[in-house]
Amino acid sequence: MARYRIATIEGDGIGPEVTQAAMAVLAEACGASTLAFEMLEGGAGHYVKSGAVLPEDTFAGCRDADAILHGAAGLPGVVYPDGTEVGNDLHLRLRFRLDLYANVRPIKLLPGVLSPLRAFEGGGIDYVVVRENTEGLYASRGAGVVLRDEIASDSLVVTRKGTERVARFAFDLAARRSGAPRDGRRRVTVCDKANILRSYAFFRRICDEVHAGYPDIAIDYAYADAITVHMLKRPDFYDVIVAENMFGDIISDLGAATVGGMGISPSGEIGDGHALFQGAHGSAPDIAGQNAASPVATILSGAMMLRWLGDRKGDASLGAAADRVEAAVATTLREGRAVPRDLGGRASCTEVTEAVRRALA
């Protein structure tokens, strides 16, 4: 049986707990001999000890692995001299060095989860935010200017290459999906501020050009401020949303809030040759070591990893395992077998993990 090398960085705070939970579930779903988890150092805690948030041997391990699984990173007060957080720099460095240009955030209301948008419970929220991950406003990371301690500036960068490839990723994803819950229509919504800034008008124009190669998929447009209203009032309209880096960061967190919160929201950072998967939440150091964290986001991120790896390697068994993991999580939540605390339940991280494993078995 094939063995796939998974570079695994537990990181900080609740990172080790949720990573171990995901590893246990994935091993249950795939069989113990399918995935080889290679544990690597990195994160804010490692920076405090060694001065390196991402050691070179960890980067090499990630570069050479079949996929990357990450827990969480960041600790209070651990910052660089310019005030930016050390923990975030772990996956940012991996993102830029491995060219993980598409940040993929599924927004799906799971069975048994109460949404603040009660009118859409029962299958009304199921879309994906695809965020350009290597440029936009965040391309200024570490390169902004502070002049005379009076003026600070960062540059917004939008390139043809970057926009073309993330737009193509979004349209390809829409082609594989079943369409929006409201009407079954496959569509890509371009989120921008093309009415104000030339950089976003350029982003929209490039998306239009890419759309010409996908005549069976509809294209839609929404300004970044307006889409925050639409995501609350008509989330069932959306199928795939593509956005510049910062806008995608903001609206994906809003989407997560409508389906139960960050604790059950998975994410993937995907390039042409590499991919990293982690829960969308932070390191939550206030509950670290208390067995109180929800492992659901990391478990579902692991399912995303299996599906990506199965597609890349032509291994249908990994896609089937991903389906089983997602079904087991849905069963666990729908039947109330173990409801994590951030969803109003009392189950510990360990109890949720074991309930998902039992549902798999």
Rank of each mutant, 00 (worst) to 15 (best):
G31T: 00
S140K: 07
A67G: 10
Y80W: 11
S115G: 10
R141S: 03
A32Q: 15
G43Y: 02
S140D: 13
A67Q: 06
H91T: 15
G112H: 00
A119F: 11
Y47D: 00
G77P: 12
D66A: 15
L110F: 11
A36C: 09
G42C: 03
A73H: 00
G87A: 08
I68F: 01
L75Q: 00
G45I: 06
L109I: 05
L90N: 09
V130F: 01
D89M: 12
D66G: 04
A32S: 15
V128T: 14
L69C: 11
L137G: 01
A44H: 10
F120Y: 15
V25M: 04
N103C: 15
P81V: 00
R131N: 05
M39C: 10
S33T: 09
R141W: 09
G144C: 07
A73R: 03
V128W: 02
A139K: 12
K108C: 12
T58I: 09
Y80E: 09
H46E: 10
Y80T: 08
L137Q: 08
V53C: 02
C30I: 01
E28Y: 04
V79N: 14
A22P: 02
A102Y: 09
Y127R: 04
A102I: 08
L92E: 02
G74M: 03
I125M: 03
D89R: 04
S140C: 14
E38P: 08
T84L: 08
V128A: 11
G45T: 01
F96W: 07
E38N: 08
A60W: 01
P81S: 10
P55D: 08
V48A: 14
